[in-house]
Design a protein around this nucleic acid. Structure first.
Length: 440
RNA sequence: GACCCCUUCGUCUAGCGGUUAGGACACAUCCCUUUCACGGAUGCGACACGAGUUCGAUUCUCGUAGGGGUCGCCA
């Protein structure tokens, strides 16, 4: 039997970490076994669903690299993949239930499914066998008076029609799963294998909802400067521990290691700091070009522009280990992109602190002018020569140059900055610091 | 209220009857260092509680407490 899994979001809002991880585990399951990953949009609630939400969910999944084999935009043999377009099918299945005498009408026309009221056991890859005693709950409504169908019913019908072999979903569905099995039985169909994965909670242990920090993929990750690979990796670690030496694993490794049986059964609290740590790890591995590509929107959003891609790439690359999020890049690298960068207040204070600072800068400038070539080494040699000429340590000279060249008290090596901006700008910036800040 | 799931450092977790209870993030200190970081080292820090079973329980069983979930004409 081929592995067919699905992610079935309801387009009522943005893609959330919980949903994203559910999608991710399904994706991993399909990829690991060479199966099929189906994306099905459960938009049966006309009042709450929006096209924007559906588009947003697809966007988030694409960003995470969770490509689907069947579903919206890509089609497939079991379409359409929007439940709002499958009414005829549901009507046909409803008829089967009717013929079997398993449904009856309420006074207002709503239709209920008659439970079998037998003990039902859910065989779950994560939770083991969970048996529910014959229920005392009222029969469940599966069709509204207006003829539209309800979640439990369409979910089961589609899982049958789409030949879903494994249902990996949030643990919040476990308590209702016996109802689904009751329905599968009523249709004479075999229920899929279930795997109810633990929920992701807020740091304070409460249920994560749309408004909570770190919950929305687009807002908290895409726009917050995370790399998709890092989020992918971090989400995997919430509720599942691959048997590997490191926690930092590529998609390929994660796919090879994936094992639904090994998913935990206890909820996990979300830790933004650790997610950022993963991001920092991935950020540092990027080549200058890759880093620039990821950084572009964040740089331009801050008004930074450039014409030389190689230079811009080298610039962001030079500060890559200072940041853990792409959004932090502009504040660390802005002076590589503009000449009118501001001077930090304490930088001005430190420059003005000692009268001889102006002399140090002038001598350094003179030595730099004489440099025949412009490499990090030659810049370093020039600064050293200047220090020697004044009988001070290079360590006294470097900070001043840093202030002059970047307006910042922290950053990459001074020689790296000077080399990257070039000889002319280095000279000009020293002159500007001398005249504008020190007034000489 | 009924039913279901869960319970190891602050957080994510390893552990599957005998361990100095291991790792990662965070935090602290030190080293490295022209700054900030990176990196390296060290430290801090946990088996919810109570009964059993057993020669021996973090590990197995039951109970209690706590957390989460479900019981919709939401999904």
């Amino acid at each position: 039997m081929s592995i067919r899994v699905r992610f079935a979001p309801s387009p009522t809002g943005d893609l959330h970490v919980g949903g994203a991880r559910t999608a991710l585990f399904n994706w991993l399951m399909a990829r690991k076994h060479g199966g099929t990953f189906v994306l099905r949009v459960e938009d049966t609630d006309g009042a709450r669903n929006t096209a924007e939400a559906a588009a947003g969910i697809l966007k988030g999944m694409r960003w995470l690299g969770l490509d689907w084999d069947e579903g919206p935009d890509v089609g497939g043999d079991c379409g359409p993949y929007f439940q709002s377009q499958r009414k005829d099918l549901y009507d046909a299945y409803f008829k089967k239930l009717e013929d079997a005498g398993r449904v009856y009408a309420e006074h207002d026309g709503a239709m209920r499914f008659k439970f079998s009221r037998t003990a039902i056991t859910v065989h779950d890859l994560v939770c083991g066998d969970v048996t529910f005693a014959p229920t005392e709950e009222p029969d469940m409504t599966i069709r509204r008076p207006d003829g539209s169908y309800i979640f439990h019913f369409v979910n089961v019908v589609d899982d049958i029609e789409m030949r879903i072999s494994h249902v990996i979903r949030g643990e919040d569905h476990l308590s209702n799963t016996w109802k689904h099995i009751d329905l599968f039985n009523a249709f004479g169909a075999t229920a899929p294998t279930y795997a109810h994965i633990p929920l992701i909670l807020n740091p304070d242990g409460t249920k994560m909802s749309k408004r909570d920090e770190g919950s929305a993929i687009e807002h908290s990750y895409m726009n917050a400067g995370f790399l998709p690979d890092a989020v992918f990796n971090y989400l995997c670690m919430l509720g599942w521990t691959p048997k590997a030496e490191s926690e930092k694993l590529s998609r390929t490794e994660l796919t090879a290691l994936f094992d639904a049986d090994a998913i935990h059964s206890s909820n996990a609290k979300f830790d933004l700091k650790k997610a950022q740590w993963f991001n920092a790890q991935y950020l540092r591995e990027l080549s200058p070009t890759e880093l620039l590509n990821h950084a572009k929107p964040f740089l331009t959003a801050k008004g930074l522009a450039w014409t030389d891609d190689a230079m811009a790439a080298a610039a962001v690359h030079s500060v890559r280990e200072k940041v853990s999020l792409l959004t932090e890049l502009p504040e660390w690298a802005h002076y590589f992109f503009r000449e009118d960068f501001p001077f930090e207040a304490d930088v001005v204070t430190k420059l003005k602190a000692k009268p001889e600072n102006a002399v140090l800068l002038k001598v350094a400038s003179d030595q730099l002018t004489q440099a025949a070539e412009w490499t990090e080494q030659s810049v370093h040699d020039a600064v050293e020569a200047a220090a020697k000429a004044l009988s001070v340590k290079p360590g006294a000279m470097m900070p001043l140059l840093r202030f002059a060249l970047s307006g910042q008290s922290r950053g990459p090596g001074v020689t790296t900055i000077a080399h990257l901006i070039g000889k002319e700008k280095t000279q000009a910036r020293i002159q500007r610091a001398l005249s504008n800040v020190l007034g000489t």
